[in-house]
Nucleic acid binder design. Structure first.
Length: 845
RNA sequence: GCGGGUGUGGCGGAAUGGUAGACGCAGCGGACUCAAAAUCCGCCGUUGGCAACAACAUGUCGGUUCGAGUCCGACCACCCGUACCA
């Protein structure tokens, strides 16, 4: 008997699949269509275990759906634009394109090595003109339909690197790379009008049945709908100040007004008053990190202005400038009701402003507010003139109605969601197809000039955008008037690239982004699988794209992803020693391959014997050096064992801890399978039926199908272990032979190489990848005998083997006759006997 | 702070309100072997007991129920998201 040779089998079957184009999806197939998609990778260099887990899950589902008779689209591509390529260009002096394409080649080979059932004929890379050219066409479509616009917007500007930084790249107010103090700069930038679809995006996400609640909630919060009143206050200098509130009911609890430091009123005052200017400057200081905001003191500056209460012209409230008011939400001005808003309460306490109760809390109705915290709960309006006695909702409606009648305010919905700024001052991205002409202004690039390709001859020696300083690229004649003009040198946010790649996978004509009819055959994606880190931005942007495309009549799909699954991370312990660096303590990490563990859990460097600290179990990352290269594992154990381990043990939505013993267990299982398959082809088939084994087989077929359908791979793995154990123990019989032959098909989606090997060895024609999922005989799913638990006062005392469907009184009699039960009752009379048919008997005594 | 999730043996985890701990990993004992690897058989929550068995046990405390890991209420711990959103 030989051991399974994965190296040989993997390569052989991967070649067969490739030559037969087994996994190429046919647009014209008469079969029902299924689109299985995993989030495409960024080509960072090599694949990591997270990729392997993600793509294995999708692969099992894709192969399973094929076996169920569906035409499956399971494509792969590369999210190939982005910063790391430019960083590599700066550090290693390689062109971003060469670096990226070399990484793609490496990673593609690594993915192929795992035997994924991918349709490589549809492979795409977003950094190639035959992809981003079509993206430019979509940009022009959006532009023509008013979904794209340009506006001045503040950005984080790194004056040394001469580039715009994302918020995540600003650390303690300094650029992450240069360390220079970041400036807020106004730049003219391109925006997608995502807020136009805010309501629809919110309603749509709520209707997605096959999305995790967690992700739906995150999207809802991000869109952030709130309903309230925008209304005017007249200031003592005669200006009108619009204020937005979600609590118009508390209008009679108003204590002060606060405006943002960059509010026009504050700016106007700052121009003539040094004290105001000093305070405004103070507000701009301080970081924007979570920790700092939390501890930051609420600061206010009394402008000396007052505002007239809209319901009482004699009532004046002071107007402050405050550091906690945001200019870009609502109107940049709030009115403070300290009794019923915690933040207002803190502010009022600090500046000794009145705190007046206007909503009752239990039996507390008096206007004097003495509690240590604001009351934000429900109640009846008190001390509020005509609102007294109403509940909060009624009072809100009443105030909004009065404001609208009086012409000084109106009910308004405000969204947290902002329009999507897509301009990036970078080289390695999709050029924005726009030309700036001094005479004609902003002119879209002519369609026939697409794709507008990136120039290859660029340098990264000096900071700034290489496109902007390229000697010729940006100089172009205006398409309208022919005068010398300038190309837009900003490129698109890489999230734009990933907002429509799934459409391009479904249909990829050469002359346009996609064919409407063909794309609609496949879309929406039936099952989308990826990391939860994309729960908000990527998924929201993709949902915006399909809506925008539908809006302009290009594609009749609303939701891009009907089913979503967010898988957990692959984790591993990290190992480090503390070392001193420039007087600072820091961790120096070691790779797991350098480490040996002792029985007590401590660890040391294998080579030197030095102790190392065993750190947290956390996501595999290069910076923590706690990565395990999938390729080394595949080379050692084969693709099937690696895949099997990825599916075992941990529920897919939870983190999976990598372990050496885990992969060895998977390898053992692959060999157990192999022994069954190989002995079958050598030994003569048994005769006679083994009904228990038949039943177990059919239960497993049904159970595994159900588990795979719901992506509960750890459960299907457990069921397969049980079946294999039962087959191993069973005496030879026709049933056992059937079971082994069928087993190959049940495991095929998970361990496809050994399954093909077995399928061929058993003399079957064709490929197991094309075989049908085994049929379940429903008659074998029911048992004729059941084990019934017998409890006394809810505690298990005995079990009975009874025919299925036995009458209640028969079961009860059998239970009461049991020796163990008689003993447990200790002579007490049963007061009550509960019989659950085919399950249990509970005797209450 | 707010929102969400998780909490079960040494570990990963199973369990439509109905026999808690399936399955895997690790460990222990045995078989085979000159020996090892591989493989096979057995044991494996805690405590007491030779055993039969009993008691305890699903983060904590309470509740609903004939019966709770599962439902309800309060709390604790950890993880994730978010950031002064008026």
């Amino acid at each position: 008997m030989s051991r399974f040779n994965p190296l040989k089998a993997d390569a052989a079957w991967q070649k067969v699949w490739e030559e037969n184009r087994t996994f190429a999806a046919r647009d014209d197939s008469p079969k029902p269509k299924s689109f299985v998609l995993e989030m495409f990778p960024y080509p960072s260099g090599r694949i990591h275990m997270g990729h392997v887990r993600n793509y294995t899950m999708g692969d099992v589902l894709a192969r399973f759906r094929r076996m169920q008779g569906m035409e499956v689209l399971h494509p792969m591509g590369w999210d190939a634009f982005g910063m790391p390529a430019e960083n590599a260009a700066m550090e290693k002096k390689v062109h971003p394109g060469n670096w990226t394409r070399a990484n793609i080649a490496t990673m593609k080979a690594q993915l192929k090595r795992l035997g994924f059932a991918l349709d490589w004929t549809r492979e795409l890379a977003t950094c190639e003109p035959d992809y981003y050219g079509h993206e430019q066409a979509i940009f022009l479509d959006f532009f023509e339909n008013g979904l794209v616009y340009r506006k001045e917007s503040a950005v984080n500007w790194d004056p040394v690197d001469m580039t715009v930084l994302a918020n995540e790249q600003v650390i303690d107010g300094r650029g992450w790379r240069s360390g220079a103090l970041v400036e807020r700069r106004k730049l003219s930038q391109w925006f997608f009008r995502i807020t136009q679809f805010a309501e629809d995006l919110l309603e749509g996400v709520q209707a997605l049945e096959h999305w995790p609640d967690k992700v739906k909630l995150m999207q809802e919060n991000w869109i952030g709908k709130s309903e309230g009143l925008q209304f005017d206050w007249t200031l003592s200098d005669g200006e009108i100040l619009p204020v937005y509130t979600t609590r118009p009911d508390t209008i009679f609890g108003a204590s002060f007004i606060a405006v943002a430091a960059d509010h026009p009123i504050a700016r106007k005052l700052a121009a003539s008053d040094d004290n105001v200017r000093a305070f405004v400057e103070l507000c701009k200081q301080g970081g924007t990190t979570a920790a700092e905001l939390e501890t930051q003191e609420k600061l206010g500056f009394d402008t000396g202005l007052t505002a007239t209460h809209p319901f009482d012209s004699a009532w004046q409230v002071p107007v402050y400038i405050a550091n906690f008011v945001l200019m870009d939400y609502g109107t940049g001005a709030v009115f403070g009701v300290p009794a019923h808003d915690q933040r207002d309460f803190e502010f009022a306490t600090k500046y000794q402003l009145p705190v007046r109760r206007v909503v009752s809390e239990g039996d507390k109705t008096e206007p004097e507010f003495r509690d240590a915290e604001a009351y934000t709960g429900p109640g009846t309006l008190v001390n509020s003139h005509f609102l007294d006695g109403m509940d909060v909702a009624d009072a809100k409606r009443t105030v909004i109605r009065r404001a609208e009648e009086g012409g000084w305010g109106k009910g308004q919905t405000v969204w947290r969601l902002r329009d999507w700024g897509v301009s990036r001052q970078r080289y390695w991205g999709t050029p924005i197809p726009i030309i700036h002409c001094e005479r004609c202004g902003v002119v879209p690039a002519p369609r026939e000039s697409l794709p507008i390709a990136l120039p290859e001859d660029v340098s990264f020696d000096i900071p700034g955008n290489p496109l902007d300083r390229h000697p010729t690229w940006k100089h172009v004649d205006c398409p309208k008037c022919g005068a010398p003009a300038r190309r837009e040198t900003d490129t698109l946010d890489t999230f734009v690239d990933s907002s429509w790649y799934f459409i391009r996978f479904a249909s990829q004509p050469a002359d346009r982004p996609f064919d409407k009819a063909v794309a609609e055959q496949w879309l929406p994606v039936g099952q989308y699988i990826g990391g939860v880190e994309h729960a908000i931005l990527h998924l929201l942007y993709a949902r915006f794209f399909t809506r925008a495309l539908r809006h302009i009549g290009k594609l009749d799909v609303t939701e891009p992803f009907a089913g979503l699954f967010t898988q957990g991370m692959v984790t591993h312990a990290s190992y480090y020693q503390m070392e001193e660096h420039d007087g600072l303590e820091r961790k120096a990490y070691f790779e797991p391959s350098q480490i040996s563990r002792r029985g007590d859990g401590t660890a040391f460097l294998t080579e030197t014997g030095e102790d190392v600290i065993v750190g947290r179990i956390e996501k595999m990352s290069k910076s923590k050096k706690n990565t395990v290269d999938p390729t080394e594992i595949v080379d050692q154990y084969g693709a099937d064992a690696t895949r099997w381990f990825m599916l075992s043990d941990s529920p897919p939505e939870r983190d999976l801890e990598w372990s050496e013993s885990g992969i060895e267990g998977a390898w053992r299982f692959v060999n157990r399978l192999w022994r069954l398959f190989e002995n079958l082809s050598e030994a003569e088939a048994g005769t006679g039926r083994d009904v228990d084994l038949d039943k177990r087989l059919h239960r497993t077929i049904a159970g595994v199908a159900e588990d795979v359908e719901s992506l509960a791979f750890n459960k299907s793995v457990a069921k397969l272990y049980e079946l294999v154990g039962a087959i191993e123990k069973a005496q030879p019989s026709a049933s056992r032979t059937d079971a082994i032959r069928t087993l190959a098909r049940i495991v095929a989606p998970m361990v496809p190489h050994i399954a093909e090997e077995a399928w061929a060895a058993m003399g079957n024609p064709g490929l197991i990848a094309d075989a049908e999922w085994p049929a379940v005989d429903p008659a074998l799913l029911v048992d004729d005998e059941v084990t019934i638990a017998v409890q006394v006062n809810g505690k298990l005392r005995d079990t009975l083997l009874m025919p299925k469907g036995a009458a209640k009184d028969v079961v009860e009699a059998a239970a009461l006759a049991s020796d163990k039960i008689v003993r447990s009752l200790e002579g007490k009379q049963p007061r009550k006997v509960i019989v659950v048919p085919d399950r249990l008997v509970n005797i209450v005594a």
